[in-house]
Amino acid sequence: MAQKHHTHGSGPSQRQLRVGELIRRTLSDVLMRADVHDPDLNRHSITVSEVKASPDLKVATAYVLPLGGRDAQDALVALRRNAPELRHHIAKAMTLKYAPQLRFVLDETFDRMDDTRRMFADERVRRDVEHHDEDDDDSEGN
């Protein structure tokens, strides 16, 4: 009899990562080809940046963002409304025991990157970073 191995606290398993990436690619293809017949959804060019699968692979959370971030809430509503049909397309393309329930959330990674860039552009922060770099250079010379 096969033993079940569980990882605790160290992040997603290799299987979760593989399934998440496969769902991401499949979902991206379905959205790009406009396989879902909803004009509200198809008017958006949506990027699926990441999909995280739950440990039991029954729930998949897709991190999405429409091109340029425009009408993000409208795109999210359209995706959620069409989740059953998107799930059907994923089930046809994949060989999983269960088609995962799809959840959609806005990907805020780009906003956080912009905030980080703005922070590093601040004169006080740049001065502190440059001062810290000079200290590192001095300690390497000793």
Rank of each mutant, 00 (worst) to 15 (best):
I46M: 00
T26R: 04
K92I: 03
D138G: 03
Y98H: 07
R33G: 11
L102F: 09
D29C: 07
T47A: 15
A2G: 07
K52F: 01
L96M: 13
S28W: 10
N42T: 10
D111N: 08
G69M: 04
G11D: 12
V77L: 13
V129H: 13
R118N: 06
H6L: 07
V51G: 08
S10H: 15
A60W: 02
A91S: 10
R70F: 14
A121T: 11
E130N: 15
G69T: 09
V59S: 10
G11M: 13
A72P: 08
T116S: 06
F120W: 14
R18Y: 00
D56N: 00
D35Q: 01
Y98S: 08
Q3V: 09
H89P: 01
R127L: 05
R124F: 08
V59T: 03
R103P: 04
I46F: 09
A62K: 12
A60D: 08
D35V: 03
R25H: 02
R43F: 07
K97G: 13
R15H: 08
H131K: 14
R43L: 01
D38H: 01
T116I: 02
R127E: 10
K52R: 15
G141R: 07
S45F: 11
R124S: 04
A93E: 12
S49P: 00
R80L: 00
A72S: 12
Y98F: 15
T95H: 12
Q16H: 07
I46Y: 00
R112W: 10
F104H: 08
L76P: 05
R70L: 14
P55I: 01
S10D: 14
S54K: 06
V64A: 09
L17P: 05
V48C: 11
T47Y: 12
P84N: 02
M1G: 06
N142S: 12
K4C: 05
T47I: 12
D56L: 02
V51R: 03
V48T: 14
S45M: 11
R81F: 11
V125T: 01
H37R: 15
G11F: 14
D137T: 14
A62Y: 10
S10F: 15
D71N: 15
V129I: 15
V48A: 12
R25E: 03
L67Q: 00
S49Y: 09
N42G: 00
F120S: 11
D136P: 06
L65F: 12
V77C: 08
G11A: 13
D56C: 04
N142W: 12
N82W: 01
R25I: 01
V125M: 05
F110H: 01
T26I: 05
R127Q: 12
D40I: 05
V30Q: 03
L67F: 10
Q3P: 02
Q16W: 05
L102G: 09
R126W: 05
S10E: 14
E134H: 13
L86P: 01
P12H: 07
D40T: 09
F110C: 04
E21Q: 09
L17Q: 14
R25M: 02
A93V: 09
S28G: 15
H44N: 03
E134P: 07
S28M: 09
K97I: 14
